[in-house]
């Protein structure tokens, strides 16, 4: 670029913007006569016209416009149809997380406390929503489809600590016919059967187990109406 093409301030000698090649000239044809006189008021026409158009404003807190179905909102830890947790505490979500927002600790499933099919369950599951960027890589990493995202986005809160969601905050509520964990797996099944979707719901053995060890469990009430000793949930 030659020196002539750029402006140069006289005093400081700084380099400025390129010098315009020529004086500015509008490409639009100029108005004439009445048009030029009414030009300042013409803009109101737009205003008036829009008064008769439908309003675009969303009345957010009063009427919530649904998000797109695949919107990345708050996470959810899902359950198998019989109520066992899908999360096996493998930490792959934590590994995938680019913002280091997820903390997981696994633990042993024991006969006394079987939370998920197989050997391992997520004992600690925390998502720090002040780190999470809702990118969804954790969802892609999850080998059991335990972690998915909801469309819920109302997350603001007054403390940092409150923005760390624990496992109980993230677990999906019990669906119809689900039995709250912990309880044993469906007899005769392996964890693979759960992943293949071969388990349709709690079986009487599981319901009896919960009835024996946690008779006050709320999920039991729906599955086992008072006075019935056998359930027909399967």
């Amino acid at each position: 670029m030659a020196d002539d093409d750029i402006t140069r301030r006289d005093q400081a000698g700084e380099v400025g913007a390129p010098r315009p090649a020529a004086e500015y000239e509008s490409l639009l044809p100029g108005k004439s006569g009445l048009g030029e006189i009414l030009a300042p008021a013409a803009g109101f026409g737009v205003t008036f016209a829009s008064m008769f158009k439908p309003t675009v404003t969303e009345q957010y807190p009063y009427e919530k416009v649904p998000t797109k179905p695949r919107y990345h909102g708050r996470h959810q830890l899902n359950r198998h149809p019989d109520g066992l947790e899908k999360c096996i505490g493998c930490e792959l979500c934590a590994w995938a997380c680019p913002a280091d927002a997820i903390y997981v600790e696994g633990a042993d499933n024991t006969p006394d406390a079987q939370f998920s099919p197989g050997e391992r369950y997520g004992r600690v599951y925390q998502i720090n929503y002040l780190r999470c960027i809702f990118c969804g890589l954790c969802i892609e990493a999850c080998p059991t489809r335990a972690l998915t995202m909801t469309n819920d986005y109302e997350l603001a809160g007054p403390t940092r600590r409150g923005m760390i969601y624990e496992k109980q905050d993230l677990l999906a509520p019990l669906g119809d016919g689900m039995l709250a964990a912990p309880h044993p797996m469906v007899p005769g099944t392996e964890d693979d059967d759960y992943y293949r979707g071969d388990v349709a719901g709690p079986v009487p053995e599981q319901i009896d187990w919960v009835a024996q060890w946690r008779p006050e469990d709320e999920s039991l009430a729906a599955l086992r109406p008072a006075g019935h000793e056998q359930s027909e949930a399967r």
Binding site: G89, E91, A94, W95, E105, G106, A107, D108, E119, R120
Partner: peptide, 9 residues
């Protein structure tokens, strides 16, 4: 060490 952690942690 069973199920306590992952190498990347």
């Amino acid at each position: 060490y069973r199920f306590r952690s992952r190498p990347f942690d």
